[in-house]
Write a protein that binds this DNA or RNA. Structure first.
Lengths: 340, 340
DNA sequence: GTGAAAGCGCTAACAC
DNA sequence: GTGTTAGCGCTTTCAC
């Protein structure tokens, strides 16, 4: 089946050596123009494609990068993947996507799977259920290039790309305060995630700036990333039992924003709450009730992360200087309240 | 960087030959229990992982399957990918995802890229802008296993998996007729796509069964797959200019359903139209206006397609008997009209 | 400017 | 039961 043309075939047909063909194909300067032309033409004619496995074996590189995300069905991630793909594609890399579904065990297995020299580097966004980072640090110590995006961790010293989460949450909370809201709740993803920590910090900073004390009863988490309705419902129920009742809510994740709106539309105890949620939904403009939202520049994050990773992979010398790139987000505020 | 352990290292450390190690690792019966145990233990200790590139080069297989879809951000496809992944994963295959963004040129390039022995087989859903199938038939003739799903084509004889589109559209249209609607429009994806042809057929069949003639003025297409608002707006405008005006609309694609609702919410000329759209949106329950919808079993389609492909790849003998699997869909009808 | 030969890591005849 | 050898397709010294 599928007998692909090889360098040997070309060499034989043209009565030259395989090495000459190889050189011609790679446009080496030490091969005559004529031979080069001959080889290139024939290669094109028989539709020759070099065997990437052989190349990888030789070069010890695969020209593929692995991506670890929670879920491709999540708008934020699918947009980030678009960004990653566009860059990778231009630079001649394949993209291998794996999903953790926010589970620690899947994350570990996928990472092992990818790492085992079938990829040249990894683009990682941590699962919300991961609290132990040995699988990551081990691979990093072994020299596998990796770049973190969105859900980054401190445990590994490398390039990181994320939204300016502190600032974004600060601005959103400040806006709510400006509009007169005072009992502002925070509903976050798993508490150890960078996005939760940073967004909570921005939220707290804004409150403090208004002389308010971030009240623990106003903060709630979704440990499973808001993947199921019940988890989000419980978290929201907890928030709604605050006294005095919350009048506004900042939601710190895409998935949770969606699920929260779903919960609120069917809530038993009707209450008026203004929501700002992080969300990259492509159809958030069609939602009812509509909510205000913070939209991250997912495509740009994906692009930057891929660029950093490829730079790392192709760097001739070990890189020791790393920076964390903060990508700005957009706050879309709707001047209406939500009533459920 | 990243010096992985090889069979040679193990052989040296244990003073046996590489072939013995290889055999032990593959649990060959022609190696003694003791040696096997020794090798396996040491391999585990040094965290040995076989080099897939070397294996691929040798076996001429990559243990990877390529997926070609229009867009991972499309709910239908991301769900199908979940199905594909779960099966592939269980059977030890990597999944390499590429997106055509519904463009012919991207489809051709991606396919070439993947085909070039870096994957063992292809799962394909055609781009809406593709009308020439040479790139596909060429690869198929060369023996590359492929399975089509969702947007299938007649030009290649292989396994295909798709929703029972004729039946789904027939049922949806019949329901509209039953409810008393008579001026039912059809808004489809590109006209050459299998999903458009089949859904249009189901639509027409239902009309005929009610003694109605499918009127050409009631049918409109989105040649670019509904990827931009203007395209959908134009198609809808065309439909709305029918005389007498349409009172219901069947929409034949996920993307177009979304964009159509967006168009209708901002339409100048208010008109009452009941919509049933194919849609796998995870948040369609949050939309306003809400529409009735047909939800395909995308996960199941992905699973079946992956199973068929892997069976094809691993088949010892050439397969000549192919079937097209039809997966059923769910019709969710809302008893309310849409007014924009 | 071109060719011969070795080797990337692994597997599979073919010895013994 | 184990070792030797050759080779998958490609690149890259090292000769000439």
């Amino acid at each position: 089946m599928f007998q692909a043309a090889t360098i040997k075939h070309i060499a034989q047909a043209l009565s030259v050596s395989p090495s000459t063909v190889s050189r011609a194909l790679r446009d080496s300067h030490e091969v005559s123009i004529d031979t080069k032309k001959l080889v290139l033409e024939y290669a094109k004619k028989i539709n020759y494609r070099s065997n990437p496995n052989a190349q990888s074996l030789k070069s010890r590189r695969s020209n593929a990068i692995g991506v670890l995300v929670a879920d491709v069905a999540n708008s934020f991630f699918s947009q980030a993947i678009n960004g990653i793909e566009s860059v990778a594609y231009d630079k001649g890399y394949h993209v291998i996507i794996t999903q953790s579904h926010d589970r620690y065990d899947r994350e570990v297995i996928n990472m092992e799977h990818l790492a085992n020299r079938s990829v040249d580097g990894l683009l990682i966004s941590m699962s919300s259920q991961t609290t132990d980072y040995n699988h990551v640090t081990n691979l990093h110590q072994k020299g596998l290039p990796m770049v973190f995006f969105d859900r980054i961790i401190d445990e590994v010293d490398t390039f990181k790309v994320t939204t300016d989460n502190v600032q974004s949450a600060f601005e959103a909370t400040s806006l709510l305060l400006e509009k007169g809201f005072r009992q502002i709740g925070f509903l976050g993803n798993a508490p150890q995630l960078s996005i939760t920590i940073d967004r909570l910090k921005g939220y707290g900073d804004a409150l403090k700036r208004y002389g308010l004390d971030p009240h623990p009863g106003l903060v709630s988490y979704c440990y499973e990333g808001g993947r199921n309705y019940d988890e989000v419902k419980m978290a929201i129920t907890a928030l709604f039992s605050s006294e005095p009742p919350i009048d506004a809510l900042l939601i710190g994740s895409d998935q949770i924003s969606t699920e929260a709106v779903r919960v609120l539309t069917t809530f038993d105890n009707p209450r008026k709450v203004t929501i700002i949620g992080f969300s990259n939904s492509e159809v958030i403009d069609l939602w009812s009730p509509r909510i205000s939202y913070i939209r991250q520049n997912a495509v740009e994050m994906g692009k930057i992360a891929a660029q950093k990773l490829i730079a790392l992979i192709e760097s001739k010398y070990p890189v020791h200087e790393f920076e964390t790139t903060l990508v700005s987000s957009e706050l879309h505020f709707l001047n209406e309240n939500i009533k459920e």
